[in-house]
Design a protein around this nucleic acid. Structure first.
Lengths: 199, 199
DNA sequence: CCACATCTGTAGCAAACACTACAGATATCT
DNA sequence: AGATATCTGTAGTGTTTGCTACAGATGTGG
């Protein structure tokens, strides 16, 4: 019994291309034709490997999350809560305006509101955003235990606030905000964080 | 020459229905069939009155902007810059979680990234968001002239910051954030505003 | 009352959509 | 080498999309 003909394309490279298309046009604005062209494969290969358009999105999101986790590790390993917030905000400003990617963030531009039959998509994106928020919260819980944050500080509130600001930066990036503009917003937000962190 | 048969539906009421559908499903997630059913009219009536799907969206956005302007007047008429920011943030938290409407805001949920052929839609939404930002900036320029804000304060930065936060709140509202959660975020943001306003 | 202009409802258009049947190609395992 | 299992490319499938032709309805102006 043979194991069959091996696939002729690199799945991860193909996912990177798909990610870019979903990011730029949103889930519903993306067509299979655009995806197959960007991935340089034909529809049957796409469906054999990923099952469906939504399956492909999930695979792309998984890959996106991998990269994001690596990036978040760097952020979370900062020594103080303040530095965590600073890195998180500033690197978001840079990443969302990185010319190598579409503006904003896949987890926001991918689709906040979708049509009948794609209701899972916004849900899926939201779950990944929540993950980031949870990582921040846990880091701030630790900071509180280490007396790096005041007794009256609520880690959940801090994490939610940072999450909200970076999501807002995505919206502004999608309408052409420059890196400097986003950094300015990040800087103001950091002051709020400092005030809040005093507890 | 007669003036023709008069239209049998109220255009504004129909626009309110259309607004709700676009808001809930996004521009590309919305179908003409959903629109005609919600508006209780048939396709020919829709096209005679609004020209196209995109024309209908623009008409709905115009109507949305009317209501928003009236609302912004209330906000901008507050006596101090601080109170303007407070009203802006808090009323946004309430509006975005008003059970009478879909969560978030039409100008964000409507579509940040669209497909080929609908590239104008994100532009159109962004233009309306920028309008709100401009109104805030002008109000803060005035506040500065009235010595209500410090000499070193940049009205543009303040306006952008508030705009970013409320956009971020839209993203969180779309994934089910409660009114209390959004108000918490608004409260933290207000502290940043205060710090920044000292200049 | 009659001519006219515009709206309404039915029915359906061409194009684009997500997805797949099928045949040939290319690997593995015995 | 032969049998088998999976991939690839061509060429479609049925469905849904935004949109409209047409005929009848309903108002206005003369």
């Amino acid at each position: 019994m043979g194991m069959g003909r091996p696939r002729a394309f690199d799945a991860d490279a193909a996912l990177d291309r798909a990610m870019d298309v979903f990011w730029r046009h949103g889930y519903e604005g993306t067509t299979i034709a655009q995806l197959t062209e960007a991935m340089s494969i034909n529809p049957p290969s796409l469906y054999a490997a990923f099952g469906s358009k939504e399956g492909l999105l999930k695979a792309a999101l998984d890959r996106y999350s991998e990269k994001r986790d690596a990036w978040m590790d760097k952020v979370l390993n900062a020594h103080t809560a303040h530095e965590v917030a600073e890195r998180f905000l500033m690197e978001h400003a840079d990443a969302q305006t990185d010319p190598a990617n579409p503006p904003g963030c896949l987890l926001v531009q991918g689709g906040l509101a979708c049509g009948t039959g794609s209701e899972n998509v916004p849900f899926e994106l939201a779950a990944r955003r929540t993950r980031t928020e949870d990582q921040l919260r846990e880091r701030f819980v630790r900071a509180k235990a280490e007396h790096d944050l005041g007794e009256n500080v609520d880690p959940t509130t801090l994490a939610r606030y940072l999450s909200a600001v970076t999501s807002g930066m995505c919206v502004m990036a999608s309408s052409g905000a420059t890196r400097e503009t986003l950094r300015e917003i990040a800087a103001v937000s950091l002051k709020a964080f400092e005030e809040q962190a005093k507890g």
